[in-house]
Amino acid sequence: MNKVIVRLKTSSIKDSERFYCKELGLFEFYQDYGMETISLIAKDNSSFILLLTTGTITDTDEYLFELEVANCTATFDKLKQKEFETTGRLISAAVFEYPLGKSIAFKDPSNNKFLLFEAYNPNLSDYE
């Protein structure tokens, strides 16, 4: 299986790990590389890894990664009421729907922006 590794700079490894693993519940600890670098693996997709390293955060308005979830609306409903212990947060006021699916936006404790999305799987018989 091929792996996808997304490298993120963080101001706090501890807060980032807590946010992604405990608060969102989408990742689990994978490996400690030393030198203030760890990796987290997506619970529902073992080919997707976040490599977190302490460093200077680049301020960008771009989303740094997207991760597919089974049900975007249910994930939004679960997390919109959550009080995050870290400074990570849900930044979407509602689920964004577009022709290819749905998405919700987040910022992690280091202000890295990312999306959780649900892709629509059109019924192919509709096109026959």
Rank of each mutant, 00 (worst) to 15 (best):
F19P: 08
E118A: 10
A105N: 03
P109I: 03
I49K: 12
E85K: 11
L8I: 08
S46Q: 09
Y120S: 01
T73N: 13
E128F: 01
K82M: 12
N2C: 06
K102Q: 13
E28Q: 13
L8H: 08
R7S: 07
N121T: 13
K22G: 07
N112T: 03
T75F: 12
Q31W: 11
Q81D: 14
E17A: 08
T73M: 10
G25P: 03
I38Y: 08
S92T: 11
R89I: 11
Y127M: 15
L124Y: 14
Y30A: 14
K113A: 12
L100N: 14
G25M: 09
V69S: 06
S110H: 04
D77C: 06
C21D: 00
T73C: 10
Y120W: 05
K9A: 15
E62R: 11
S46I: 00
L100F: 14
C72V: 05
V6R: 06
R89H: 07
D59R: 02
L67R: 11
N71Q: 06
T60I: 11
V6E: 06
A42S: 03
T86Q: 07
A119G: 12
L90Y: 02
M35S: 14
T56A: 13
F48K: 10
I41L: 10
S11G: 12
P99W: 12
E36W: 08
N2S: 04
Y63A: 01
